[in-house]
Design a protein around this nucleic acid. Structure first.
Length: 879
RNA sequence: GCCCGGGUGGUGGAAUGGUAGACACUGGGGACUUAAAAUCCCUUGGCCGCAAGGCCGUGCGGGUUCGAGUCCCGCCCCGGGCACCA
């Protein structure tokens, strides 16, 4: 091998070092009073720095944004393209449990490894803007946001049945639990999970449900993702209706989206957990009902989530009165009604609801149609519920109305009689925000006795900082059998850092490992100053109580739960803009300049959770005046998944994992970057095929390197100052035009194929103008930055190529003197015609008809129509 | 079941309603070489044909159009999401 050969292993580290030292891709915040350059903020979903290192999926999205960033920089934008670490989380903690090593230490190593690997790919980030969710200087502000949520009544504590995973030793959010044929399982690790009542922090995201739906409208996101979020929020409008319970002084309230079918309600169902169930049940039925409710409770863990179930239920013996017609209808208990949605009770209209129909069929309950189905034979027995529109029947004064009109009329009537009202419900549940883990952000919360809480509230706001962050309604909970009230750690004392612990092992009782840090948990709190002092001291293995320091001091215990991994990732894109600000989450002036990411690239697996949570926090921060923008991510793009060579999802167990480090070793980072982008559309799921990288290798080695440089690595002799021939010039300018447009829309695969076409033409040309060669290098540079920097320099230009202004195409170079026209007869291709581009239509038609392959087809036939699309086609319709 | 996305050569994939298969990979043939690698040239959707050429072809069946991979209707299959949300 000659030293002048293309050797990625030697040139790639050289340029990676250059970009790092030169800070080529730093995107500075504008200086005060300076007129700043137009900005472009491109964001990747930051990775979890796992011990396993980079996966081929990381460089896919990251190469795309790196390439776009490099083009934008050449186009004169001040580009912000940062990177950081979503480093709290379970795998590191589990590794810590296994090895006994502190998670912070392990995290630091993993991050160093990730950084090294990203740099090897030629990915360039502004290292001064790096954020790390586990850095106390970062999570100070995660905690600060939580304090704001708390203060504004959006955080509360609830003891409720939550998914608990014994294997992981933690609770999981609904979203982290998957339904599998084996029952509910944890998303991480696929371990069995069960429902357990535990004390939990919950964020009131449902208060933002309508805003979250409304905000979607203006976002440039994939439609499917918007729809996913909309369905997830699941807003439905209808009515709440009160049914008097027969013989009881109680009303049963139901939610329905179909108040128009009220006359068709032939029975009611309450969920097994409904608070009125016991009252409704008559003594004769009590044993059976209680057995069912008990069974349903246990069942809810497994079978209730199962697919394709038979409907089950039990009659309570009680009756309710239909408010519109006084009909007495039976009340059943059944687990197909969920306590967590609506009011936990329904009116059942089997004629017009599939689930009610199935239930009524199973138990032989009455089915009364109240909407005429024009397509059904009224004499035949119903085989399914009719959910379409039609005229109302059997419905008193609603008869004859259509569904929409009947809904409006009945809702108004119910409201007038004060037995019902319009109502809205959401599928979205409040966000379970606590985890019983060590490796997460500690809650900046302390618990006081109700008496001490009253003392604190009695102080004026300016007498105690602690009083400034209390919610209007106190957050209370029963902890270890005692009533407690929550207050926050004073914001000036943030961050509240994680204490040292001896063991990261979960307690198994659902309590966090932090609960074992007794000195950290138990403090004396000065209600006026917010100062804390140890309340329990460990000495020689004994725990000793310290004396209360004075009258202003109260006994407080710290919250021992930690926040979920979503917390840190909810706002990291804000911190990139102003990463070192010690005084505020982000300087408003800086936010005003960068606004929010112009493009966010990441996997579709975060379509609901991360992207919904981040929108919630952002909207909230906007509402309390912290942010000017309303939405965090204007434009969103999902890169697809790279499958293994076998077309299956890459996984260790399948042994089909492609390691980026090996690809770089064999072919170089530029080849890997290009090939990753050449595989197919960025958004598509596509299989990796190592053989295919040959094509990219040949392109770089033979068409780029060897065409532009000679055997000594000097500019090739074919490079000169004479003008290119027309074909070569056209190829270049077509390529400038197409590549620029394709990069802009992240269509890298077609951009690369166009560059290959251009390079093939360059190879064919006898001479090549220096300027053309350089323009081509610039087009290629965003995807293959190392080789292009190297050749750029060897052609006598100063690095970096990214600083050179982006080439512009010359439209006049694109036009050809002649055009090629396809000639069809009756839509079938029969010949082609090359004519001067300004040939008149009649001449073209005459020439077309005279073509060797066309003329015989016209013999003995009449032309009924002649179609001519300039520059495209001639179609002769004959009979 | 409901909501999305997608079915194009041996493979990955291109195609504003206007030449289907760009660009690559693989395969076949050839050149260079003692040989191989590398490189270069030709070829590579199917069928018929010595050839010129013809016919068929974008999951299936219909339709709109001078013209459909592209638009419309009805199916089939694959992938993703949701799943008793009243």
């Amino acid at each position: 091998m000659k030293t002048a050969d293309y050797q990625p292993a030697s040139i790639e580290p050289k340029w990676q070092a250059f970009w790092a030292d030169d800070k080529t891709f730093a995107g500075p915040n504008p200086a005060p009073n300076a007129k700043p350059a137009p900005k472009y903020y491109v964001l990747d979903m930051f990775p979890y720095p796992s011990g396993a290192g980079l996966h081929i999926g990381h460089p896919e999205g990251y190469t795309a944004t790196d390439a776009l960033k490099r083009m934008k920089k050449s186009q004169g934008f001040n580009v912000l393209h940062p990177m950081g670490w979503d480093a709290f989380g379970l795998p590191t903690e589990q590794y810590a449990i296994k090895t006994g090593r502190p998670p912070a230490e392990v995290t630091e190593e993993n991050i160093a490894n990730f950084k090294k690997q990203l740099a090897q790919i030629g990915l360039t980030y502004d290292s001064d803007r790096e954020v790390n969710t586990t850095d106390p200087a970062y999570y100070k502000w995660t905690q600060w946001i939580f304090v704001q949520l708390f203060k504004h009544g959006l955080a509360y504590v609830e003891e409720k049945p939550v998914w608990y995973c014994p294997e992981l030793g933690t609770v999981l959010a609904n979203e982290e639990v998957l339904n599998t044929p084996e029952g509910p399982r944890s998303e991480r690790g696929s371990f069995p999970v069960e429902k357990r009542p535990l004390r939990q922090w919950v964020l009131r995201i449902t208060a933002y449900a309508d805003k979250l739906i409304a905000g979607l409208k203006d976002l440039d996101w994939p439609d499917s993702t918007k729809r996913l979020q909309e369905n997830w929020i699941g807003r439905s409008t209808g009515a709440e209706v009160d049914f008097q319970l027969d013989g009881l002084d109680e009303k049963l309230r139901v939610f329905t989206t179909r108040p128009d079918t009220l006359y068709g309600a032939t029975y009611m169902v309450v969920s097994p957990e409904h608070p009125l169930l016991s009252k409704i049940t008559i003594d004769d039925r009590r044993a059976e009902v209680e057995a069912y409710a008990e069974q349903a409770k246990r069942k809810s863990d497994l079978e209730r989530a199962e697919l394709a179930k038979e409907k089950t239920g039990v009659f309570t013996g009680g009756y309710a009165i239909n408010p519109v017609n006084g009909a007495k209808i039976p009340v059943w208990v059944a687990d197909y009604v969920l306590i967590t949605y609506g009011t936990g009770a329904i009116m059942a209209v089997p004629a017009h609801d599939e689930r009610d129909f199935e239930f009524a069929k199973t138990f032989g309950l009455e089915i009364l149609p109240v909407i005429a189905n024009e397509n059904a034979n009224p004499d035949e027995e119903l085989t399914e519920a009719y959910t379409g529109d039609g005229a109302l029947i059997n419905s008193g004064d609603l008869n004859g109305l259509n569904v929409a009109d009947a809904k409006a009329k009945i809702t108004a009537e119910l409201a007038a009689k004060k037995v019902g009202k319009e109502a809205v419900n959401y599928k979205l549940r409040d966000w379970l925000f606590s985890r019983q883990r060590y490796w997460g952000e500690p809650f900046p919360i302390m618990w006081l006795s109700p008496a001490d809480y009253k003392r604190l509230m009695a102080l004026d706001k300016d007498e105690s900082e602690l009083n400034n962050t209390l919610p209007i309604d106190p957050v209370t909970s029963i902890i270890n059998g005692e009533a407690r009230c929550a207050i926050t750690v004073p914001t000036q004392d943030l961050p509240l850092t994680l204490p040292q612990v001896d063991s990261y092992q979960p307690t198994g009782t659902g309590e966090s490992p932090l609960a074992k840090a007794v000195e950290w948990v138990n403090v004396w709190l000065n209600l006026k100053t917010g100062e804390t002092r140890p309340r329990v001291i460990q000495q020689d293995g004994d725990e000793q109580l310290t004396e209360r320091p004075g009258t202003d001091w109260a006994a407080a215990t710290r919250e021992t739960n930690t926040m979920p991994q979503w917390a840190g990732s909810c706002w990291y894109y804000l911190r990139y803009m102003d990463p070192k600000n010690p005084d505020f989450i982000i300087d408003p002036k800086i936010e005003e300049y960068w606004q929010a990411p112009d493009l966010y690239v990441g996997g579709a697996e975060h379509a609901v959770l991360h992207l919904l949570y981040a929108r919630f926090w952002h909207l909230f921060l906007h509402d309390i005046g912290v942010l000017k923008t309303k939405e965090p991510f204007k434009k969103l793009f999902h890169q697809g998944i790279i499958l293994g060579e076998d077309g299956e999802k890459m996984s260790k167990s399948r042994g089909n994992v492609v390691n980026p480090e090996f690809i770089i070793k064999d072919h170089g980072a530029d080849a890997m970057r290009l090939y990753l982008m050449f595989l197919g559309p960025l958004e598509a799921m596509k299989p990796w095929n190592t053989d295919g990288i040959q094509g990219i290798n040949r392109f770089l080695r033979n068409k780029v390197w060897r065409e532009l440089l000679d055997d000594n690595g000097q500019p090739a002799t074919k490079l000169c100052d004479t003008e290119d021939d027309a074909d070569t010039a056209r190829a270049l300018h077509e390529t400038i035009k197409k590549v620029t447009a394709d990069y802009e829309r992240l269509s890298f695969n077609t951009a690369i194929s166009q560059m290959m076409i251009c390079a093939n033409q360059f190879a064919k040309a006898k001479t090549l103008n220096f300027a053309s060669a350089k323009a081509f290098l610039q087009l290629l540079a965003p995807l293959a930055p190392h080789i292009t920097e190297e050749i750029w320099e060897r052609l006598g230009e100063a690095p970096s190529i990214a600083n050179a202004p982006w080439p512009k195409h010359d439209e006049s170079k694109l036009v050809k003197d002649t055009v090629k026209l396809m000639v069809q007869i009756n839509g079938k291709l029969r010949g082609e015609l090359e004519v001067a581009k300004d040939t008149a239509q009649p001449d073209i038609l005459t020439a077309a008809k005279a073509l060797d392959k066309v003329a015989p087809q016209l013999e003995g036939k009449t032309i009924v129509k002649e179609i001519y699309v300039p520059g495209r086609i001639v179609n002769l319709v004959v009979k």
